[in-house]
Design a protein around this nucleic acid. Sequence first.
DNA 1: CCACACAGGTTACATTTGAAACCAATGTTA
DNA 2: TAACATTGGTTTCAAATGTAACCTGTGTGG
Lengths: 173, 173
Amino acid sequence: MSETKGPEATTGESPESRTAELRLEKFLPYRLSVLSNRVSNAIAGAYGAKFGLTLPAWRVMAILGRYPGLSAAELVEQTAMDKVAISRAVSALLKSEYLERKEDQVDRRRQMLYLSESGKGVYNRIVPLAKRYENDLMASLTEEERVQLDVILEKLMSRALEWGMHGLASHED
Amino acid sequence: MSETKGPEATTGESPESRTAELRLEKFLPYRLSVLSNRVSNAIAGAYGAKFGLTLPAWRVMAILGRYPGLSAAELVEQTAMDKVAISRAVSALLKSEYLERKEDQVDRRRQMLYLSESGKGVYNRIVPLAKRYENDLMASLTEEERVQLDVILEKLMSRALEWGMHGLASHED
DNA sequence: CCACACAGGTTACATTTGAAACCAATGTTA
DNA sequence: TAACATTGGTTTCAAATGTAACCTGTGTGG
């Protein structure tokens, strides 16, 4: 079959010999990273060009479009982005008038965030664009595969999440 | 069927009403990005701490471990990283003596790259580490799902690749 | 009421990253 | 063999990102 030519093909060395081997093209973390970058860049390029939005800014809008009135801290939870990224995205969006904020009267540190009218306008135009990209990707899969993918991503995600909490059990060699 | 509560659940507005809606948590590009970042950061952290390698540097080593003698340009093809990233990774690795380079006598612009002895040492210790992470992730999937994932990633990747070439057919609204 | 620890956000600084200009060396055309 | 386009690779500069320090404003213990 289409075995990509590898070192051992010419040396005859077995894959489990003393020498470690890694096929990057089949290495999951690598594949995820490449795929994710390609996809994100393509989409970010599209609305970046049209609306002058950065990817983090767009994410903030995406969340606020569905959950108006969230605070920055809550955005952090929802988006898995960090404090600073959110803060910067928000202040950019305030400057471009896509967002408005209201102080929470009971806790004066807290700022509630909303899409402005023009923000909603942009939101309503980007969402379909974003969906077109996603649909186009998904169109390359069968209905079955789309379901499988959902399940798989969920599992991988929750596994990876656990690393964040207690690292990978190390063999300490 | 486990519809996560969304705005329309409370408003009774239909998903296909005038107002666009996007569920970020289910939006493929977003999920890929979050998963990929978590995974990459976890792993990069691990060997970054132990061997002082950046992620791009590690990728370069990963490739050269299997395909010694490649040039920077060829690394670009293999890794989907760009010229500059490769150039920097390589010069860092030369400085830390994990890499050696030989001028190609027939084309004197071209540099052939090899892992040094100590580079090979590092490589041989990182590969198992990397594999442990991957295995740990994969362990959360059934054997079937692993196969499915492989197929799906391949499809998504080739779709995304086409965007790079002739963009997404735009409706120009 | 006065410390003190803590949560929400922002700012400052250092690093990383990417785009474009750049410097060879090579190939090509005439 | 003189021009010119091309390719391998590096450098430069600006923008994006992450970390840690920092300023509020809130809660809590004494």
